[in-house]
């Protein structure tokens, strides 16, 4: 008779030194997660809650002993014996410059935390002068459900990965062009209705800068009526099919103004389909006076 082996496989761990403190984490843990993840004090832009980052923004850089360059903490796994510094003159300089580079070339007015980081790192995006090249793109309004304003886009790749292999597998958008002219684009830059877009809105969900925005929100912002302070959020379950996706209704003045999904939802991981994301008007059709 064989005894039942009920010991669990041991999780491999690594030990490293971060800012002088010895830490032991599971193998594969990134430096950022070892430091506490989002909100731990290391700024992040292209690192989203539900997307494996491409480490393209380079704002979360830290120093690793023995490395010639700084390394992106959002992506670099902790290795045995690694010695990490998360704050130094060299690091601060890189973060400041990335904030200035982005602030001087795109509109970050709807990007969370930018103002506080600019102050913390002494970033002054205006020092490149009024002639500094900017990403100057007209707002693309080519469908009823969402708008694309690439003058706000930092090319974080999250929409591309949400549309592509990380979530939706629709592969409707990708980066087109090179260098400063690189843009997120549909195939041949066709309008969304002519593309393969299925309007799941998962790209909007992960966009950190407001470059992708629900038309409902865009119209209200244009009209000056968008007011997040007056909004409440109601979590509910989508009633369209049997999957039971979690919806987060954003409600202002008794009207649903947009629908997201909780990023930590075990069912959706923040993703929805077109029905859950956009099919809410029936819930608020009100009888007319006559």
């Amino acid at each position: 008779m064989t005894a039942i082996d009920d010991t669990r496989p041991e999780i491999a761990t690594v030990e490293a030194m971060i800012d002088g403190v010895t830490v032991r984490v599971a193998e594969g843990t990134t430096i950022l997660d070892a430091c506490g993840g989002r909100g731990c004090g290391i700024p992040t832009l292209c690192y989203g809650e539900t997307i494996t980052p491409r480490n393209a923004c380079r704002v979360c850089m830290v120093e690793v002993e023995g490395s010639r360059t700084l390394v992106p903490s959002c992506s670099r796994p902790v290795t045995e014996g690694m010695v990490v510094t998360t704050r130094s003159e060299r690091i601060d300089h890189s973060r400041r410059m990335v904030l200035e580079f982005l602030g001087s070339s795109v509109d970050l007015s709807l990007t969370d935390h930018v103002e506080e980081w600019n102050a913390e790192y002494g970033a002054d995006p205006t020092r490149y002068g009024p002639e500094a090249a900017r990403v100057d793109e007209p707002v693309r309004i080519d469908n009823d459900l969402y708008v694309r304003d690439y003058s706000k886009c930092i090319l974080c790749y999250q929409c591309v990965d949400a549309c592509g292999e990380q979530w939706q597998n629709s592969f409707v958008i990708d980066i087109a062009g090179r260098g400063f002219d690189a843009r997120v684009s549909t195939e041949h830059d066709v309008a969304l209705p002519d593309s393969g877009c299925v309007y799941c809105g998962n790209c909007i969900q992960v966009c950190p800068t407001g470059a992708l925005m629900f038309t409902s929100e865009y119209d209200m912002r244009q009209a000056g009526t968008w007011d997040e302070a007056r909004q409440t959020q109601v979590d509910t379950v989508c009633g369209y099919c049997g999957v039971g996706c979690n919806l987060r209704l954003h409600v202002q003045d008794d009207s649903i103004v947009k629908v997201t999904s909780p990023p930590d939802s075990g069912i959706t991981s923040g993703n929805l389909c077109v029905k859950g994301r956009f099919g809410f008007q029936h819930a608020q059709n009100r009888p007319t006076a006559d």
């Binding site: 704002v59 580079f101 930092i154 090319l155 980066i175 090179r178 260098g179 400063f180 002219d181």
Partner: peptide, 10 residues
Amino acid sequence: SCGQCVPCRV
């Protein structure tokens, strides 16, 4: 510049 990362692109 291919445009992938901010430090080089900008």
